Amino acid sequence: NMVHPNVICDGCNGPVVGTRYKCSVCPDYDLCSVCEGKGLHRGHTKLAFPSP
């Protein structure tokens, strides 16, 4: 899995490795796959980016 450079997960404050989930509503909100799997930020649609 690749690390998305200059992207920090807003759920756990860790690096985003593998798929990046970017909120389509909020201007700067990203989740890693673990936090997305936990259902964080469920109210907004997210775009999935498998690689940087």
Rank of each mutant, 00 (worst) to 15 (best):
N1F: 03
N1A: 14
M2C: 04
M2V: 01
M2E: 00
M2P: 06
V3Q: 04
V3S: 13
V3F: 13
H4K: 13
H4D: 14
P5I: 15
N6S: 09
N6I: 04
V7S: 09
I8Q: 12
I8P: 05
I8R: 13
I8N: 12
C9Q: 01
C9D: 00
G11V: 10
C12W: 00
C12P: 00
C12K: 02
C12N: 00
C12F: 00
N13I: 03
N13K: 15
N13W: 05
N13S: 08
G14Q: 10
G14W: 03
G14S: 11
G14R: 12
P15E: 15
P15C: 07
P15A: 14
P15I: 07
P15H: 06
V16R: 02
V16T: 09
V16K: 02
G18K: 07
G18A: 04
G18Y: 10
T19F: 07
T19I: 09
T19P: 08
T19G: 06
T19R: 08
R20Y: 14
R20M: 10
Y21K: 02
K22C: 05
K22E: 05
C23Q: 00
C23M: 02
C23L: 02
S24F: 04
S24C: 06
S24T: 14
S24D: 14
V25S: 10
V25K: 09
V25W: 04
C26R: 02
C26Y: 00
P27G: 05
P27L: 07
P27C: 03
D28V: 05
D28R: 11
D28C: 06
Y29V: 02
D30W: 14
D30T: 13
L31A: 03
L31P: 01
C32L: 00
C32R: 00
C32D: 00
C32A: 00
S33G: 09
S33C: 06
S33N: 12
S33F: 06
V34S: 13
V34L: 13
V34Q: 12
C35T: 01
C35R: 01
C35V: 01
C35D: 01
C35G: 01
E36H: 08
E36I: 02
E36S: 05
E36Q: 07
E36V: 04
E36T: 04
E36G: 01
G37D: 13
G37F: 08
G37L: 11
K38M: 06
K38W: 03
G39P: 04
L40Q: 08
L40K: 14
L40T: 12
R42E: 15
R42H: 13
R42C: 13
R42A: 14
G43L: 11
G43M: 14
H44T: 02
H44F: 02
T45N: 14
K46L: 15
K46Q: 04
K46G: 04
K46E: 04
K46I: 14
L47S: 14
L47K: 14
L47M: 13
A48G: 09
F49N: 12
F49P: 06
P50H: 11
P50Y: 04
P50A: 11
P50W: 05
S51W: 05
S51P: 15
P52A: 09
P52H: 05
